[in-house]
Write a protein that binds this DNA or RNA. Structure first.
Lengths: 344, 344
DNA sequence: TATTAGCACTCTATTGAGTCGAGTGCTAAA
DNA sequence: TTTAGCACTCGACTCAATAGAGTGCTAATA
């Protein structure tokens, strides 16, 4: 099907198009890439490639641009070429927990780093799974009818929420409840939950309602998979030619702002086998049809984390992949505080 | 200086320009606003107003647009007209504390509401002042060398941070320290601080270093004024004609993303006398020269909060001011949970 | 004296014709 | 199988012409 030279021509077109952003003509290829062959020869190859769905022309007298299919081939070639260096198999997240602002802080840092190095947009998605283990719980009275629920999970992830208490629960009951739950530290929430319900019905009779409310709130925080998205600065996008067009910028922007679609996308495609790439219309998010996502996922018992870079479909894949690789690698190297100094 | 009719013409120009976005000619005014006067008469007035710095022409054969000075006059007129309804004097923040996601959640909500109602961008800035009172503190061991510092301030504001402990502080000392600090709940941090230092030097001898590190970290969180910015969705901006121009969009966007400049601006101009408006170049942030900010501030002992709307200089001031007014008013009306249902 | 009608003038925006150049497809020769 | 040659296509750019909105000034008018 695809001869050796077809491939050569195709990869050259992709490369040149990524470089210049302009539709590539046969003459350009003949001069810069395949100096042995004349433009006419290349024209024939290009016509074949177009027929096979790898190239497209906006109009008769223009050069050709790669289709998503061509990008896919290109990216797979790049990924294959470096697959032997693919050491990390998703353990990198373990090394983020000691960051001074917790995992959240570490991910914020990482996205910013990815953004700076790639000149596109770094993103991170952190998903709290059901198996997350409780580390500590606390109730703090804000006023007579409001209590602050404070919840720390293993790995230093903090949740908090204010609960309105319908009855005025006595201080002792509250403290008792707290103590009771904290003895269960280290267990997953669904275990804790069962143990608690028995205790409440049995010993807290009159205040069961109030307590159940607190439990409900915790359920809401813990029972469902809950994903937080971190996004690097978008200012780089303004200098990417593909996003000068306000409509395209808007499309990407709305996805990043809205979060949910991107979260779904990353969940759907996340695997733990090194680096993944989603290009253009390979997914079903129309707003991202001019974009590509390069990412890597990491999973532990209680959480799933994905780090990646979003940029135009016409991105410098080689660079972006190596940037991601590099950042993941560096994170596992430096075990500790990447925060600013002050480590006396 | 400014005759009655000058004023009439000027306000009409501003009004029409805000409506249409196009430079206003004398004929338009004569037909739509000052039907009694001919275009020629109005032309004379406009020439005067231009000389006085209220109007400007991009070129000879175009209509005229208001200058910042004209907007200022216009806004002051609007503000004056409704000043008697100006009930709120910054007490609104008191009513936000019971929100189910804390003050942070309430402000997120409020900015989103302002955004939706105004069709521009709602913002909120929350500044933690030095006088903030401690409500509860906790240290939670993450692993042998890391401790999660958890800090709750009055009003349910939660801070947390991971600290690296150089020596392995025994569990008892940590608990003792925690207990000790918590007896000081209700005091401002600068008081707590002094009491603590004595205790540490005296009784914790060998572990003083470790503890001091924790104290330093708390200092960093509490001693300095620390402002958090909340921004509503920016998607409205895409439909505002003034921001179709990518350069203008970028200018506003970079300010909102960068945060610090806007925070400074709001700090500098925040007063507690109702609603304030900053237009175009009245401040010294060049990126905001095409924008205006309508805002209101609220101050209590421990914090300063500002809620506002950012939009183009050519914004519908009357509407925006009334939206802000309305939201502030509503917040003080509804004392409780604006969260979704579940108030059993 | 203040207002207005009239007119010449200025400047932008739009339209259409003309041209240039990059690139293609096809054919015939090497 | 490759390549040179040629006619053809189509977007991008330039240029001139025109329409239209608005102005400033002057002279007439109430």
């Amino acid at each position: 099907m695809l001869t050796e030279r077809h491939l050569e021509v195709l990869l050259s077109v992709v490369h040149e198009f990524i470089e210049s952003g302009e539709h590539v003509g046969s003459r350009t290829l003949s001069r810069r890439y395949l100096t042995g062959r004349s433009a006419a020869t290349i024209r024939n190859e290009m016509a074949d490639l177009e027929e096979m769905g790898y190239l497209m022309q906006p109009h008769t007298s223009a050069g050709r641009a790669p289709t998503t299919r061509a990008y896919r081939l290109f990216v797979d070639t790049v990924l294959q070429r470096r697959s032997h260096r693919d050491l990390d198999r998703g353990e990198w997240v373990e090394h983020l927990k000691a960051h001074r602002n917790g995992l959240q802080g570490a991910l914020t840092n990482a996205t910013e780093l990815l953004t700076q190095l790639s000149n596109y947009v770094g993103v991170a998605a952190f998903t709290q799974l059901k198996q997350a283990r409780l580390s500590k719980i606390d109730f703090i009275r804000v006023d007579t009818s409001h209590v602050l629920l404070l919840l720390v999970l293993e790995g230093g992830i903090v949740h908090h929420r204010i609960i309105t208490m319908p009855y005025d629960l006595p201080q002792e009951s509250l403290e008792d409840l707290t103590r009771r739950i904290n003895t269960l530290a280290g267990h997953a929430w669904n275990e804790v939950r069962i143990l608690l319900h028995g205790y409440i019905a049995q010993e807290l009779g009159g205040y069961a309602d109030s307590c159940r409310k607190a439990i409900d709130e915790m359920d809401r925080l813990l029972a469902a998979e809950h994903t937080t998205l971190f996004t690097g600065s978008l200012s780089n996008l303004f200098s990417v030619p593909d996003f000068q067009n306000i409509a395209r910028f808007r499309a990407l922007f709305s996805i990043l702002e809205q979060e949910s679609e991107l979260v779904d996308l990353l969940r759907k495609y996340s695997r733990v086998d090194g680096i993944g790439v989603i290009i253009g219309e390979e997914h079903d998010v129309p707003e991202l049809e001019n974009c590509a996502v390069v990412f890597s996922s990491s999973s532990t018992e209680g959480q799933r984390t994905t780090l990646g870079i979003i940029g135009p479909k016409r991105m410098n894949y080689e660079k972006v992949i190596s940037v991601l690789d590099r950042v993941l690698h560096d994170m596992t190297e430096l075990p500790d505080d990447s925060g600013s100094g002050a480590n006396c």
